Amino acid sequence: MSERRLLLVHAHPDDETLTTGGTIARYAAEGARVSVLTCTLGEEGEVIGERWAGLVADRADQLGGYRILELTAALERLGADGPRFLGGAGRWRDSGMAGTPSAANPRAFVNADPEEAVAALVAAIRELRPHVVVCYDPEGGYGHPDHVQAHHFTMTAFDAAGTDRYPDAGPPWAPAKLYWTVTEANSLRQAIECITETPSAWRLPEPGELPCVLDETVTASVDVRAVLDAKRAALTAHATQVTVSASGSEYALSNNVAQPILAEEHYVLVRGARGEVDADGRERDLFSGIAF
């Protein structure tokens, strides 16, 4: 086991695999300690198929507990530590999309008390002592309120963890770097153009439908080709939320929009010093430049 430690903060079970699963699997395979902190149980998610459809929020409302099982299996397949939940499992509830009744629930993550949530995040950072932290960009990737909330809380906690704030949350620890997980527009476009066949119920995304960022904003690209089998296995573990195509090159959520499984995962460095870069001016290793 190396000295390297990575912490990724995600809103719901499956988010960790969708955008960062390859990164998790790569660094875990290289011997780093990789931890995922999930902010809700994903109780408001839709379910693919009929087998577990009765678990959804407006029926049995048991989906969150089932998704703990899916997350546990996905993390095992990626090689990461077992699941951790911000404030403990079930402390905050999936808010659903903006403007929906679920967002008005007092337990919804969007209504979380910032001091309590940030203190819990600081405690996790100080306990796990990561060198690198990953969270969402200010838009939360695609605008989900829980993703945006996770972004704000993680940014605040990252800056506070190495200070004397929150004295009850453990000894201070200052991570070296903070990245936002993003998807590069050109890589996404090229991968979509390579999709030749999908299940009959799926459709290709409309131009601009899938979230992405301008290529020039990306500062780090992580090659995950060697661990794509692990990422596919983890996506398959989230069976209530994700379907992987027979080719293993694409997946779809409950909306049946085909999305490519990319060979690189993309990041923007927003805290810390940039390490070694390639000819394109990008880091290829999130731990680059950190002294161990």
Rank of each mutant, 00 (worst) to 15 (best):
M1D: 15
E3W: 14
R5N: 11
H10E: 14
A11N: 03
H12W: 04
D14R: 06
T20I: 12
G22C: 09
G22H: 05
T23K: 03
I24H: 06
R26C: 01
A28P: 11
E30G: 10
V34L: 02
V36S: 06
E43T: 04
V47H: 03
G49L: 07
E50P: 05
A53G: 13
L55W: 00
R59H: 15
L63C: 01
Y66K: 02
R67T: 05
E76Y: 11
R77I: 13
R77W: 13
L78Y: 00
A80K: 01
D81Q: 15
R84Y: 03
R84G: 11
L86A: 01
A89G: 12
R91M: 14
W92F: 10
R93L: 07
P101V: 01
P101D: 00
S102I: 07
A104M: 15
E115G: 05
A117R: 00
A117Q: 02
L121K: 06
A123T: 06
I125M: 01
L128I: 12
H131F: 06
P138E: 10
P145Y: 00
D146T: 08
V148N: 08
Q149K: 09
H152W: 13
F153M: 14
T154Y: 04
D159F: 07
A161T: 07
T163L: 12
D164M: 15
Y166A: 08
P167R: 06
G170F: 09
P172I: 07
P172M: 06
A174Q: 12
K177P: 07
T181F: 10
L188N: 05
E193Q: 13
S200H: 14
P205T: 02
P207Q: 02
L210A: 02
V213W: 07
L214S: 14
E216Y: 02
T219M: 08
D223Y: 03
D223P: 05
V224D: 04
V224E: 04
V227I: 12
A234I: 02
A234L: 03
L235V: 08
T236S: 13
H238K: 05
V242T: 04
S247M: 13
Q259N: 13
I261T: 03
A263K: 10
Y267D: 08
Y267I: 00
G272H: 07
A273S: 14
D280L: 08
G281P: 10
F287H: 01
G289A: 06
A291L: 14
F292Q: 14
F292H: 15
